[in-house]
């Protein structure tokens, strides 16, 4: 049997939600009961798919327009969400694929299972994607999503949020999370937010208003940096370009 070298720095679980979080009811039957098996990463996790800009359409990063009829626009407060994807050593991660999805300004998703009273917006599709630049930077244009009620407790409301899915350079860096907005009083009442055991880790999911990046008379900006787990400095082989 060969030794596994492990290209990834082991994950720090203190900042991550446990699987079983009974106040978030859906986790009760969907949380593995046995502890995860820890092992060093192998080439199967150190490697990962590579995405190039050819997969992107010209409006993929603009949710105000990417589903709007010609000459029209999604309804809601216009915002920019931007930031940097970094690893735990603070290095920017270029070529990271970000996929986002969100409710419309009224808090309604374009999904047949979402029966919330708030109306659909025919000009809003609710998803977008981008690939980070050489420094790991990204930028989306969208509308501020509305909070929405959800069946959990008797009166639970999700704070306004944008779902993020991230591919870094290793499949072991794969991350999904949600971004919240500075000042939203629902954040600290949300059972999904509260699955995260560490207050500072929650605060890092709350994007501050970024006046420096705000476009006057156009869109307010929020800054959200994403941190992927680190890889050992020695580069590893096996990464041909182009997926």
């Amino acid at each position: 049997m060969t030794d596994l070298k492990g290209g990834m720095i082991p994950r720090d679980w203190r900042h991550q939600p446990p699987a079983f979080t009974p106040d978030y009811k859906s986790s009760r039957l969907r949380s593995p009961k046995l502890p995860k098996l820890s092992m060093p990463s192998t080439p199967s996790e150190d490697s990962g798919p590579v995405f190039t800009r050819e997969i992107l359409g010209p409006l993929d990063d603009d949710l105000t327009l990417n589903h709007a009829a010609p000459g029209e626009m999604a309804i809601g407060p216009r915002i920019i969400v931007h930031g940097q994807v970094k690893d735990e050593m603070g290095r920017g991660v270029p070529g990271a694929l970000l996929e986002i999805w969100q409710a419309n300004a009224g808090g309604r998703y374009r999904h047949k299972n979402d029966g919330y009273l708030a109306p659909l917006d025919p000009n809003f599709g609710g998803c977008g994607r981008a690939i980070t630049d050489d420094e790991g930077g990204y930028r989306f244009h969208t509308v501020l999503p509305g909070p929405y009620p959800w069946p959990n407790g008797a009166n639970d409301w999700r704070p306004a949020h944008i779902h993020f899915s991230v591919f870094g350079q290793s499949f072991a860096q794969r991350l999904v999370t949600q971004m919240y907005f500075e000042g939203d009083p629902l954040i600290w009442r949300c059972p999904i937010v509260a699955t995260i055991p560490d207050r500072a880790a929650i605060e890092r999911l709350i994007a501050p208003l970024d006046m420096a990046a705000t476009v006057p008379f156009d869109a307010r900006a929020y800054r959200f940096d994403l941190l992927l787990r680190g890889r050992h400095a020695s580069p590893f082989e096996n990464r041909p370009e182009g997926l």
Binding site: D12, H15, Y24, E88, K112, H163, L227, L228
Partner: peptide, 26 residues
């Protein structure tokens, strides 16, 4: 200095809107 990995959150019930819209008819 080592920074902390961003905390994970569930994808929720509507992940297909963002990741596989065609699979749910969008």
């Amino acid at each position: 200095m080592k920074l902390h990995e961003t905390a994970s959150q569930t994808v929720g019930p509507y992940v297909h809107i963002g990741c596989m819209p065609n699979a749910i008819g969008l």
